[in-house]
Nucleic acid binder design. Structure first.
Lengths: 225, 225, 225, 225
DNA sequence: CATGAATGAGCTTTCATTCAT
DNA sequence: CATGAATGAAAGCTCATTCAT
């Protein structure tokens, strides 16, 4: 991001006057618009003009607040990671019930991708660019998913109770869950054309969620005697 | 695609001279260059000029042979589906050994994504555009993966031998395999930043492949009485 | 026009074989298509491709037969002048009835513009280019309108009979007739928007033709003592 | 015209600074250059680059102020109609002298076409496009020529004084005058080639103007008992 | 703090024309 | 005779960005 970008996000809310609030609103509007536009059109397809119009602001404001298109895009990535992290943090699990907790985690992850398709397309876009932007972000590193830690604890608890097998990594389990939730949403359009089915009907979605839960439970299940 | 786009005439091979061959080469060069460029930069980022230069040809020839940028992109999608199909067709499986065959399928799918990263990014790009282009392709519809049919037969064989459980759909199994192979490659850059690991080392790749095989085998395993 | 243009128009029809006839047809098709395309889109808007497609031929054929786009355009101008001349030559007038003959001439001129709108737009296009192309044509000079000569004779006859005034030039009368017939057709689209009327209805057309006849007859009428 | 085109804001004249004035100049320069370029080369031949260079500005500014080439062209048409209207409004006529007034009107119309050849070629160009652009203009509709109304009053006055015949429409008289002034200028290049005369010499122009005046006066003259 | 104006490079596409058989 | 292939310039338009107040 350009050095000229004003980082108003650290502004103390205490001394915020009317002016500053309006500015914050303009900044937020741009950021929200950018999420939508980049998610829909990609990085190259998401033009500065599209974003400023969607934010009901002006091109110039993007440079005023974010320094450059790339600076804005990086903040977009940070924001969606932050939101994901925040949502994960709100997960309330009962450590005493590892199976139910694991189901809840799966439902959460699969549901999050379903309800936040921008998250999926933005990550795909960033992967197209080989993670070039996210590497530049200092803050993104802070957002290491709490989900893995949650799964680790949950696994430990289940293993202690003899409900889960012991030779499995939290990381792999996390990837397994994420992969199946993500791929289904991410590739739904080409898959629909390919399979000749509608993958977005409530029934199809429920079927897939159940299949993923069933799969994960079979994977963690201990060897039968 | 524009009606003016010249399709490669496979008819009248009799009078194919030097020029016709050169034309074939030009067309092929453009198509191959387009696969690389679109895979690397996406649809919007993959400019006509980048492609024509990579093909050592001229912008104009893209319009001569493909009618438009979109026409070329559609042919790119058709081509990568065709290649995938062709590769799948070359798979030799022993129906008498369903477990080994299933393992071979998984290794093939996971390996294909690994060895053909353009396939992954091109599909992501097309999904970003909500499958808008693949829908326009008549040919793409013919390329419904033989893989599902292979899995179906393999499942039936395993079930007949009592090696596999009976309440599982070939489609779901296909998606499970694809999801885990695809996601790992597709999202490797953001995952690397996120997990702080290198996912592309031979060890990491082998570990994941084994995990997927293990997962799938557990999923198809019959209930132990 | 380029020196390489083949002028097949002078080819003796006697020794024309099948090949030559087909060529003549291709040439004619192009010329006819060019008249339509140039009349509709103007010189710059009338692309070589539009013409070759309308003629169901190929761009290359235009260069083969006409040397260049400009060469074709010049032949188009020659052709429409030739047709106009030919049509005028077919006019049969009774020199003994100068008033009726004059009316017939007016009806012919006004009607010709009406029935041949390409003639009007092609002349406008050529005037936009300040007659640059028609000057290059040798043949166009041969086509000095017989209409003026006809009017001259007709005027003389009327004057001899005391039906027409004597102090009027055939040239001016010709321009008067042409101007009123031409302008009405040439400018009908802007006039329609301007006047808020439909100028192309049969009634409107008949009204204008009658008005022009009435005007011309008043102009040639001798002073009433 | 694109909705993004910035219209000249005539509001808030209070804070008009140097920049705003410069912008006004840029916009005006482009509009004036466009009139010349479109008049000379037609719509297709009048390239954006030719215009921006003639205006000593940049291609981009045409899109900034007019949205598109078509938007600029529409404003050009509006402007030439506006100018024509304005010039007509400045005509000072003595209603008590209908013959002299009618002569003045004819001299004005014929003179206007002579002195404003861009008006003629631009209207021809618009008619080539079948009035497609002028229809899109809202403002153009307001510019219904005051000339017709002037002629109407003048006719009424002359009729009241017994100087003009009563069975003649102002519209027809307007078209008669316009046709003869317009055609002579519009078609002067092809007519010159055709007639082998120079139509633009002062003598030729004066001759034609007098002929038109004579013609119109004969047309409106009452029947001599 | 905010914003109209300006900028030049780059975009996709079409142009008239020539090459090579 | 006829035609697919090739070519480079130029078309209309959009891009991200900076200027000047």
């Amino acid at each position: 991001m350009s050095a000229t970008a004003k980082k108003t996000r650290t502004a103390s809310p205490r001394r915020s006057g009317v002016r500053e609030q309006a500015a914050q609103t303009t900044r937020d509007n741009i950021l929200k618009a950018a999420i939508k536009v980049f998610a829909r059109y990609g990085y190259d397809g998401g033009s500065v003009e599209k974003i400023s119009k969607a934010a009901k602001s002006f091109d110039r404001m993007i440079y005023y607040y974010f320094g450059s298109k790339e600076g804005l895009y990086i903040e977009v990535l940070e924001e969606i990671y932050r939101r994901m992290n925040e949502a994960e943090s709100r997960l309330q699990l009962d450590p005493g019930q590892p199976v139910a907790a694991l189901q809840a985690v799966i439902r959460f992850v699969v549901g999050y991708y379903r309800k936040n398709p921008e998250f999926v397309t933005l990550l795909n876009t960033e992967n197209l660019h080989k993670g070039r932007h996210i590497i530049k972000s200092v803050r993104a590193r802070e957002y290491s998913s709490p989900a893995i830690e949650v799964i680790r604890q949950l696994l430990a608890s289940g293993q202690a109770q003899g409900l889960f097998r012991s030779d499995i990594l939290a990381r792999d389990l996390y990837l397994l869950i994420a992969a199946n939730g993500y791929f289904y949403m991410s590739n739904r359009h080409t898959l629909s054309a390919f399979l000749g089915e509608d993958l977005e009907s409530p029934e199809a979605l429920a079927h897939w969620e159940n299949f993923v839960i069933d799969t994960v439970l079979r994977v963690v299940a201990p060897a039968s005697h």
